[in-house]
Simulated assay, not measured.
Amino acid sequence: MGHHGWGGRPPASDAEARQRIVDATARCIDRHGVTKTTLSDVANELGVTRQTVYRHFDRINDIVAEVAAQGAEAFVDRLVAHLQGTADPAEAVVEGMVFCLRTIPTEPRLSLLLQLGDSSAFGRGATTADTIAYGARMLRRFPVDWDAAGVGDDDLTGLAEMIMRLLTSLLQHPSDPAHDEAHLRALLTRWLAPALNRAPAPSPR
């Protein structure tokens, strides 16, 4: 690991170096926007060479994706906190989607998820197995007794896929004129909630 630059404080490990690169990239994005942030900007922010950054990340898009991923983790914590006290499965899913649609486009680091093209969490990447599995784990954190509602692990995976597909469409192709929250909530309650309000199918004998 190189010990030059880094503001006179070289990282103690590769993990620390990667995190400092991610943090520097986030600062550059805050100043310049994602489309104008280059790997040279990140290297200059850290006081290191481009080659030093390349030792840890192959492309600027890989660093930007990590900035977005870390922002998403913090976002999920806020989402789960927002849903506390909402134990009904249908209500939790509808309210969670409304929260996502309201929050993601307005926050710079979350909106990165919309700007990374086909690899992003809300591009073609929304339907990868890893992203859907992440969505299912996120649903498990909701304040809902899914088992009591008859929603098993396989069902949560399917629900996560449908949610990701719907969010992708609604975020990337918003209505014109835009729907307000009341309209979105009514739309989701009418067409999505019934699938979660159904009684569990009887077990085969």
Rank of each mutant, 00 (worst) to 15 (best):
G152Q: 09
V76D: 08
R55S: 09
K36D: 15
A92Q: 02
S203K: 10
E66Y: 04
Q84V: 11
A133K: 10
A148F: 07
E66P: 04
V144Y: 00
A92V: 01
S169F: 14
R140H: 14
R137S: 13
S119D: 14
S111E: 07
F75A: 10
S111W: 05
R55H: 11
R190Y: 10
E73V: 14
G117R: 13
A90H: 00
P108A: 08
R141E: 11
D62A: 08
R205H: 14
L101D: 02
R205K: 12
E73M: 10
R27E: 15
M162N: 09
F99N: 00
E161C: 10
G125F: 09
A92M: 03
G123L: 11
A69F: 11
H183G: 00
P105N: 06
A65Y: 06
M1H: 06
R31A: 15
G117F: 11
E161Y: 09
T168V: 13
V94M: 00
G158F: 03
G47V: 11
I104K: 05
D153N: 10
Q172L: 15
N197D: 09
A15P: 01
A26K: 13
R59C: 01
T52V: 13
N44Q: 15
R20M: 03
L114H: 07
A74R: 12
R102A: 09
L166K: 08
G8T: 05
R198Y: 01
S169D: 12
R59E: 06
H82F: 14
D58F: 03
